[in-house]
Amino acid sequence: MENPGAFNFLRHSPLMKNFSFHAYLVAGFTPITTGSVLDDLINRPKGMKGYILNLTLTGKGDVETHGMREHCLPGDMLLFPPGAPHHYRRAADSDSWDHVWVYFRPRPYWIDWLDWNQPGQGVKRLRLPGAQAAAEVMALFQEILTFSDSGGHLSEALAMNALEKLILRCQQLLPAQPVPACDPRIAAICQYLNENLDQEVKIEALAQRVYLSPSRLAHLFRQELNTTILCWREAQRVSRAKSLLQISQLPIATIARMVGYEDQLYFSRLFRKHVALSPTQYRQQFDESIQVRSA
């Protein structure tokens, strides 16, 4: 990355301030040199409750997750999902590692933008494609840092809006993924269901959307996805509920309604069937005990 000194990141360093990871957004800059006070291993065997975006500015870092170790170089953006075990530090063969980061609990509708089309629950990676993209991303980080530190009216809301722009820009920069062969009518139904998980939609209404009979739609859906429409939607609802339990403190009843279940007890029984834990137990797995200087 070129000219990281274009922004005054230093005043956002752990050397200059303390951080609390109980907020919905915390951002900072970590300059590390050999033997400095910040030159230490960050070890999170249970991950974090929220997400972390981490951008290397200069030097080299080592990141390990699920037994796999990788280097991060200038221009590498890392996304740490909730609960992903990881640890990282300055690489042994580099005398520095400067990185800027933001820890956050996303707005619920951001979740689909945070998978980065990469399988598994480990750390995701985006290599910024060139100087212009790097400058845009750095500017968005600076905007987040400036707003989050301002302490003024609506500062957190402004920082969250800047973070949303950063997340969307990362989505735009992701390499194009091959699209699995799927009947476009089934793809359209899946998209519609995902966008309306809280709604009760009848098979007949879905069939009308793609100009099929209900029986033909049901047959084609099972042929394409090896499951029924209702089972597929149920799995998507549980998946969305898991994300909401990880990233928010919304009441269980509210999350149940957000994914289409008015009856909290029914939702809890259904959730346990899929996850082998109650919603409350699942949320407790992501309770964090984070030291002040942990990022």
Rank of each mutant, 00 (worst) to 15 (best):
E2W: 04
F7S: 07
L10Y: 12
R11T: 13
L15M: 09
K17R: 13
L25P: 06
T33K: 13
V37T: 14
I42A: 11
G47M: 02
G50N: 04
L53I: 11
V63H: 12
V63D: 12
G67M: 02
L73G: 09
A84W: 00
P85L: 12
H86P: 00
R89N: 00
A91Y: 14
A92I: 04
S96M: 12
V102H: 03
R107S: 10
P108I: 08
W110H: 08
G120D: 01
L126V: 15
L128E: 06
P129Q: 06
G130H: 07
A133G: 05
E143K: 05
L145F: 07
D149P: 02
S150Q: 03
S155M: 08
A157R: 11
A159N: 14
N161W: 04
A162I: 14
Q171V: 10
P175L: 10
A176I: 14
V179F: 00
P180R: 04
D183N: 09
I186A: 01
Q191N: 09
Q191G: 05
I203E: 00
A207P: 12
Q208S: 13
L212V: 13
F221V: 08
E224G: 00
T227E: 13
W232A: 09
W232G: 04
R237A: 08
P251F: 04
A256G: 09
Y261K: 03
E262C: 06
L265M: 10
Y266K: 15
L270D: 10
H274Q: 15
A276Q: 10
A276N: 11
L277G: 00
L277K: 12
Q281L: 02
Q285I: 10
Q291G: 08
Q291V: 05
